[in-house]
Computed example of a mutant assay.
Amino acid sequence: MPVTLEQIGIVLENIAPVSFAEDWDNSGFNVNLHNTDVSGVMVCLDVLPEIIEEAAEKGCNLIISHHPLLFHATKKIDSESYEGQCVRMLIERGISLYCAHTSMDSAPGGINTWLADQFALTNRCYVQNGTTEHFYEVAVHTPRDHAEAVSRAMALAGAGTLGEYTECTFRIDGKGTFRPGLDASPYIGQGGKLETVDEIRISSICSENDLQKVLCAIRNVHPYEMPAISALRTDEPQCVSSGLGVVGDLPEPSRTTDILDRLKEILQTDSIRVAGEMNGKISRVGVCGGAAGDFAGAARNKGAELFITGEIKHNDYVAHTDIILVEAGHFDTEKCFCQLYAQGLQKCFHDVNYNIAIYVTNLRRPYVNY
């Protein structure tokens, strides 16, 4: 069965939602040729004329890149410029372009998570928090003999999950009173007569994302015609669901030179740039792919003693002498994107039974050599 570009767009949101992207970014569709069926997908780091040709030769009419083709505000399309040439080639060959830039940097399981995983970092936090999801306290009064059914339905809908704990509730016994109207259909009692019932108040925490599912689950199993439900947004806890950069603890303190050797092995590169004292041992490390030298101070504030990124400006080296700075190259710190995104896309296609070929372009070497 054909799969439309719009259907694919929904799947892409499951991997790295555009809402995770920074305001200054241009993640999402850069070229959207609507009302087309997707014949194949090509994943790349950058959009280049040769990659567009490669996609066309392989029968792909959707390219997914990490870096946006249209990044800054565009006032004209010049076919002799890099952007204009690529746009013209994409349209002529009927290829749409989707870019997952800071959305994939910030997503759990994205580039920065991959970098942190290579060093087995624990006790993690984001260098810069992204999307923050609030929690709600949901409370409902139910007859005693329905308490377990209501509580179970709430849990299955996502309520009561905090970290490694599930089915967390608080219960209070009490007396409920109500007077059904003459046209009501009460589970207990008679119209016009005041009733007193032994009830249990069940309260539980749920995420903002799960709130409507929890409310629906309660109503589906609750015996009352009009159950009394309250939902109050809490200041704490909060769930940070995305962020840029990761800081975490190494499994054990390591010499700086050993960390750098491990980094070159991970990135399969022969050279990196380092500033700072290299004789001691490091316990806590920060990572952020791409150009994130301006995050050095924030990483230090989160306890990082060494910060790895792709590009660092001279001023950042000057301003942050209290942390070891490692510049490993924009290309090398982000080249993992292609395999990461292709694997995530393959899983999503499998889950929804989409039979579409996915190709990863042969990565070129960095544009700058040392």
Rank of each mutant, 00 (worst) to 15 (best):
M1C: 07
V3T: 13
Q7S: 09
I10P: 00
L12F: 15
E13V: 09
N14T: 13
S19C: 06
D23A: 13
D23K: 15
N26E: 08
S27C: 13
D37H: 11
D37P: 03
V41H: 06
D46N: 11
L48H: 05
L48G: 03
I51H: 09
I51V: 15
L62P: 11
P68R: 07
A73E: 12
K76V: 09
I77L: 15
E80V: 14
R88N: 10
R88D: 14
M89V: 01
I91A: 05
E92V: 06
R93Y: 04
S96Q: 02
S96D: 03
L97M: 03
T102A: 01
I111P: 11
N112K: 11
W114F: 15
A116C: 05
F119P: 12
A120N: 14
N123K: 15
R124D: 06
C125T: 15
T132S: 13
E137H: 14
V140G: 09
H141D: 02
H141N: 05
R144K: 14
E148V: 12
E148K: 09
A149L: 09
V150C: 00
V150Q: 00
S151L: 04
R152L: 14
M154L: 04
L162N: 02
G163N: 06
E167S: 04
C168M: 13
D173C: 06
G174Y: 03
G174D: 03
T177C: 15
D183M: 02
A184W: 00
S185G: 00
G189P: 01
G192F: 00
T196Y: 10
T196W: 05
D198A: 10
I200D: 06
S207I: 05
V214H: 08
V214S: 15
A217Q: 06
N220G: 04
H222K: 00
H222A: 00
Y224H: 12
Y224R: 08
E225R: 03
A228M: 02
L232H: 15
D235Q: 12
E236Y: 07
Q238C: 10
V240T: 14
S242H: 05
L250F: 07
P251M: 06
R255C: 07
L260E: 09
R262T: 15
L263T: 10
L263R: 02
K264D: 04
E265P: 00
D270E: 14
I272F: 05
N279G: 09
K281H: 08
I282C: 01
S283Q: 12
S283L: 07
V285E: 07
V285C: 06
C288P: 12
D294E: 06
G297A: 13
K302V: 02
K302Q: 14
G303R: 08
A304H: 10
E305T: 01
L306T: 08
L306H: 11
G310V: 11
H314C: 04
N315Q: 15
D316T: 10
A319V: 00
T321I: 00
V326M: 09
E327G: 04
H330T: 13
T333M: 06
C338D: 02
L340F: 07
Y341M: 14
A342V: 09
G344K: 14
N355H: 13
Y359G: 03
V360W: 03
R364H: 13
R365V: 10
P366Y: 08
Y370M: 11
